[in-house]
Structure formats: structure tokens, C-alpha cells
Simulated assay, not measured.
Amino acid sequence: MTYVANARMYSVNPPAAAAWKDLFGWLARESGVDLDIIDHAFPLPLADLWSRNDLACAFMCGFPFTLATHRPRSVAAPVPTNAPIRGRPVYATCLVVRADSRFHTIEETFDGRLGYTVADSHSGYNALRHHLLPYFLHRGAKLYRESIGPLTTPRRVIEALLAGAIDVGPLDGYALDLMQRHQPDLKSELRVIATTDPAPIPFLIASPGCPDDIVANLQATLATFADAPGCVGLRERLRLDAFTPVAVEDYALMTRWDAEARAANYPQPA
């Protein structure tokens, strides 16, 4: 049987998408699992990808994973080269403004226009709200005049910033690093003014019914990625050091942050 692979969440530009296809090609050859590498680009819903019954390898954010009634199977978590905790499968959200913006702190953006990705995103919504919660509690009122979204993808957050449609927006830190690897000009167009606390990174999943031997073969092969001689170039192109087993229990942090914000009557970042 042929199984589906996709890296929509981190196919942040054409060179990154090509690198992920090369990674999945290597994974198929080394694991012996027949992978059909499909495109599932915006505006197609990610939920449609995650609900496929032939899925073997696709990225899923930990927040919708924890909220899912029927959870998919965990395969492996990536370890970014520039992870906020070195050597760990974690990431953080960068709060970003235009490089020529007058804003230098997150407090200076208050009363402006805040962008967000989508309500079931950790990096583009839940982590953003967690970071802003202490300011909201101190102020006792909305922080921003407008909350603009769903922008859905990191790319569209950047487009909104550069077009002047929002003043500040959240970017998955690993996605930003990957974009800047392949689009160095972004470093002169954007500026990070704050960074959230680290959290467990989106990880590769398979459908709930994916056979044990398929999942095991993929996991065993991905465990060799860090030291595989043939993956030296891929590690650099993908800004990844390794893949590691998924500690599912760590992702409870995301629902805890969500519960804290809702208890404080701060259901959405604004």
C-alpha cells in the first residue's frame, strides 16, 4: 500500500518545499515505506490532510493534536538547529514587526493592529495569547484596537506586515529560521521585538489506523537522520539537527496555556 507524506506546515517557500520532498524521498528509500509525497497548499484546510486514513508522515501542530477527539499516531518530532533549548524538539513564537517600524518593544505595539494565524494554532494564536496575558491582566482591557485574522500561514503574516495591514504578528520561530535560510532578504525586512516561552514543536503524525510496522519503520529511519552521511545537505537546508521520539505528555502545556487564558476571560489575542 502507498501512504501519504506532506510537510505543508513547514513548506514555507519553494526551496524549503523542495528540501522536504527530498527528505521524504530519502525516508521512503531507507525505510522501505512507499510514500506518495503530495501537495496540500493553502487554502486547502489542514484538517482535511490530518483526517486522511492513508497518512503516514505529515506535520501537525501540538495544539489541535491535544484537542482532537481521535488523535493520530505520533511518528517523530524535529529538533531545529536553532531550537530555543538546544538539542530539544521545542520552538518559540517570534513577535515580529517591519524592520522600518517605530516599534521596539511589544508594549509599544499596544492599541495598534495585531495579526494572528488561526485559532487552533499554537505558535500563531495560543502562544501569542499566553505571552500577552500578563499585559492584559495588568491593563484590565483589550491591548489592541484590532485583531486581524485568520491569516492562516506564516507567509501571509509576513505579507500583512510588509503591506502595512498589521503592526505586529506572530511567526513560528523554526518557520522563520527556515524562511530566512532560503530568503536572506527577509532579515532586512523584519525585526523580532519579543519571543514567547518555548513549547513542544509540531511533529510528524500518521493516521490512527496506520499499521504498527509502517510507523516503526518510519521512526527507526528518522532516528538515523542526525548521523546519516547522505543527509548532511538536508540537515543544513532544513535547519534541522535530528528527529526524536514524541513525548506526547509534554503537549499538555498547550491546553494548560489555553485554559489559563480562558479563565482570565482572554479567549483571543486582542
Rank of each mutant, 00 (worst) to 15 (best):
Thr109Cys: 13
Ser188Asp: 15
Pro64Gly: 01
Ala226Ser: 13
Val157Asn: 00
Ala252Phe: 05
His131Trp: 07
Ala228Ser: 13
Gly112His: 05
Val33Tyr: 06
Asp197Ala: 14
Pro89Arg: 02
Ala247Arg: 14
Glu107Ala: 15
Asp111Gln: 12
Gly230Glu: 15
Leu222Pro: 04
Glu260Gln: 15
Pro245Leu: 08
Pro150Phe: 08
Thr153Val: 12
Val248Tyr: 01
Ala47Gln: 14
Pro78Asn: 11
Val96Ala: 01
Val4Cys: 10
Arg156Thr: 11
Val79Met: 07
Ala83Met: 06
Pro14His: 11
Ile38Asp: 05
Ala160Arg: 14
Val33Cys: 05
Ser31Tyr: 08
Ile205Gln: 02
Arg113Pro: 00
Pro14Tyr: 09
Ser121Met: 04
Ala19Pro: 00
Arg235Tyr: 07
Gln180Pro: 00
Leu23Gly: 01
Gln180Leu: 10
Ala18Asp: 15
Leu132Val: 12
Gly87Ala: 10
Asp54Thr: 03
Gly149Cys: 09
Ala175Pro: 00
Gly112Val: 15
Thr224Asp: 11
Ala223Ile: 11
Ile166Met: 02
Leu23Trp: 10
Ser188Met: 09
Tyr125Ser: 06
Pro202Gln: 09
Leu114Lys: 00
Val192His: 02
Gly149Ala: 08
Asp167Asn: 11
Gly173Asn: 02
Leu238Trp: 08
Leu204Lys: 01
